[in-house]
Nucleic acid binder design. Structure first.
Length: 293
DNA sequence: AACTCCCCCAACCGCACAGGG
DNA sequence: CCCCTGTGCGGTTGGGGGAGT
């Protein structure tokens, strides 16, 4: 990924000697990464503008901070989002909106930028394909009444081989999403009195009582999948964006992809194009049913 | 094999806001 | 109150690489 660095002529209009340096921009080199990691290891984070100077980096403090937080920090998890993480994002976005950093707090090792990119490139894209607003009630209903139950089903069906779901490292007060949570505040149109336990599929499914059970039940889900995704049962589940980061410092974080062959299916993006490809038809078929209301 | 198209994501920019001096 | 710095967010960009022809 390394290319010739483009150079940004100095941003300061001043001609004072100290600030009169050429600032680098574009992709970071290994040397720059090493400098930044080494400096932070010895001196800690913070004071990014000073840090950039003292570390000998011809970067803005902002750029250094972004590189560290989104890429170099040891606990940054890389690789595909697991179904659990996708579920968390969908659920949390319905509660928090575009507050990416807040959402990221519940996904240890995931950055707000990564989550934002996921939302914009995956979820919003599908909304565009369906020609509906990603923030519309209709799309929210689809997420809560179709995709989340499906994600939960995928998770449950493989729970015997999946590691336990990570809890948020530090759950903000007043926003309990842990198991057995009794938090009932959510604005989804699916229900006004359901639990926010996002791991409990029965709760989620019961939130949409007007959806015919056949739409999300085990057997009929399979037939639905077969009807709408004729390739094979897992075709909708095969991820095609899994470009694992390469050549990076902290790339040894466990990725569920690598656990077993079956696990490859679990890590697939349930919101991948193939999954959604026939959903517009399905969506419009269901629109007049006024479910979840 | 070569070329084009398109998607994804790292990185950027601008702006707003908070907090400390 | 002003300035500086740090942080967060929305939106955008550009390059790598896969898919399609």
């Amino acid at each position: 990924m390394e290319t010739d660095m483009s150079f940004l002529s100095k941003t300061s209009s001043s001609s004072s000697s100290d600030d009169d340096i050429e600032l680098r921009r574009g992709p970071w080199t290994n040397e720059e990464d090493n400098l930044l990691v080494h400096y932070i290891t010895n001196h800690g984070e913070g004071r990014w503008n000073m840090l950039a100077k003292h570390a000998g980096l011809k970067r803005t403090g902002k750029s250094c901070r972004l590189r560290w937080l989104n890429y170099l920090k040891p606990d940054v998890k890389r690789g595909n989002l697991t179904p659990q993480e996708q579920l968390m994002i969908l659920e949390l976005h319905s509660k928090l909106g575009n507050r990416w950093s807040k959402i990221a707090q519940y996904l240890p090792g995931r950055t707000d930028n990564e989550i934002k990119n996921y939302w914009r490139t995956r979820v919003q894209k599908q909304a565009r394909n369906l020609k509906i607003d990603a923030n519309s009630a209709a799309f929210q209903e689809m997420i809560h009444c179709l995709w989340i139950p499906r994600l939960l089903q995928k998770i449950q069906s493989s729970s015997s081989v999946m590691p336990s779901i990570q809890s948020p490292q530090s759950t903000p007060q007043g926003f309990n999403i842990e198991k057995n949570s009794t938090n009932t505040s959510r604005s989804s149109s699916c229900s006004s009195s359901h639990s926010s336990n996002i791991y409990n599929s029965t709760n989620i499914m019961s939130e949409c009582p007007k959806i015919p059970p056949r739409d999300i039940g085990d057997s009929d889900l399979n037939s639905f999948v077969k009807a709408h995704f004729p390739v094979d049962d897992n075709s909708y589940d095969v991820d095609n964006y899994g470009q694992l980061a390469t050549g990076n410092y902290y790339n040894d974080v466990m990725d569920y992809d690598q656990m077993s062959g079956d696990q490859n299916k679990l890590t697939g993006d349930v919101l991948s194009d193939s999954f959604w490809s026939n959903m517009d038809e399905f969506f419009y078929q269901k629109q007049d049913m006024s479910h979840c209301r």
